[in-house]
């Protein structure tokens, strides 16, 4: 190898080798993002320790640890179910599990959207100071949300069991499929929204404002059937369909197949948009955050 300023042959794109780093500002746009994603998923142990510490940091030193999530969820669900059950005049055995699953799944969706908007802002200290994959912090955020979800599902399980519902294995499988679809979509959504949020600081605020609105127009704690002529609010609301892919099979609600169709199409669109967003701008993230 020559020592003089190199010729083009010296700097040709590398053969596949993990210890080689190659970047060309005029052409490496998508390669950079793909390498980032590959590197993020290549070390499962690192994901494990990042998710673990990310989760534990919040509850360290508390008596209940992660079970505080269970307590908080139980409080919210009971409060909503008892009060709105009276207002709506709904039967408790139907309404309690409806609210429980609704609040828990909504919590997952809103956490992923909210944390997604700021994911690169809060982790910029890491990837601007060390050669570590940026998307790793999206994986971490989704992982932390997934662990929190386990503690919330305890409430769902208890409520469903208590009111005497016994979903079949198929129903459980379909609900898990719905949940998997939400995680998948959440990952790409956070990847894209996080990139946008790193560039425009208003995105985080806008997202928070939007989520408050979305909470009320999505049938989380009220039943779609009560809308009458305003059914379209639910019909054309992808969030309602994502919710129904989990709640529908668990509680035997109608329209599960239709919801899966809606959710899958939305998911595909979000996957493409998120991948494009990150694909084009991943290499700008160090400059933005």
């Amino acid at each position: 190898m020559t020592h003089s300023p190199s010729t083009s042959a010296d700097i040709a794109p590398p053969r596949a080798k993990s210890t080689t780093y190659y970047f060309d500002a005029s052409s490496s746009r998508f390669d950079y993002a793909v390498d980032d994603l590959k590197s993020a998923f290549s070390n499962l142990k690192l994901i494990g320790s990042l998710v673990r510490t990310g989760f534990l940091a919040r509850y360290h030193g508390t008596l209940l640890g992660g079970f505080w999530i269970t307590v908080t969820t139980a409080m919210t669900v009971s409060g909503l179910a008892l009060l709105y059950g009276q207002i709506f005049g709904a039967s408790m055995t139907e309404y309690f599990p409806y609210v429980a699953v609704g609040i828990v799944v909504w919590g997952l969706i809103s956490t992923m959207i909210n944390d997604g908007a700021s994911v690169f802002l809060v982790s910029s200290g890491f990837f601007t100071q060390s050669p570590i994959a940026k998307s790793l912090f999206v994986v971490r955020a989704i992982g932390v949300a997934a662990i929190g979800m386990c503690f919330k599902l305890i409430v769902v399980a208890v409520v469903i069991y208590a009111v005497g519902l016994r979903p079949s294995l198929t129903d459980l499988g379909v609900a898990l499929l719905g949940l998997a679809l939400i995680y998948w979509t959440g990952f790409w959504f956070a990847l894209g929204l996080g990139t946008l949020g790193a560039r425009f600081r208003d995105v985080g605020q806008l997202t928070a404002a939007f989520l408050t609105f979305a909470f009320f127009v999505t049938p989380v704690f009220w039943q779609a059937s009560r809308l009458g002529e305003y059914q379209f609010i639910v019909q054309y609301n992808p969030l309602a369909h994502f919710l129904n892919t989990v709640r529908g099979p668990l509680l035997g609600l109608p329209g599960v197949a239709e919801s899966f169709l809606w959710a899958t199409c939305s998911s595909l669109a979000i996957t493409v948009a998120g991948a494009l967003m990150f694909g084009i701008f991943a290499r700008r993230l160090c400059y933005w955050s």
């Binding site: 010296d10 210890t19 780093y21 190659y22 500002a25 005029s26 490496s28 100071q129 160090c286």
Partner: peptide, 18 residues
């Protein structure tokens, strides 16, 4: 390999510790 430059190209062979 932390900061992708905005112009030019770079190739680094070998494991880097920063």
């Amino acid at each position: 390999g932390i900061l992708p430059p905005t112009s030019g190209r770079i190739r680094v062979e070998g494991r880097v510790s920063a």
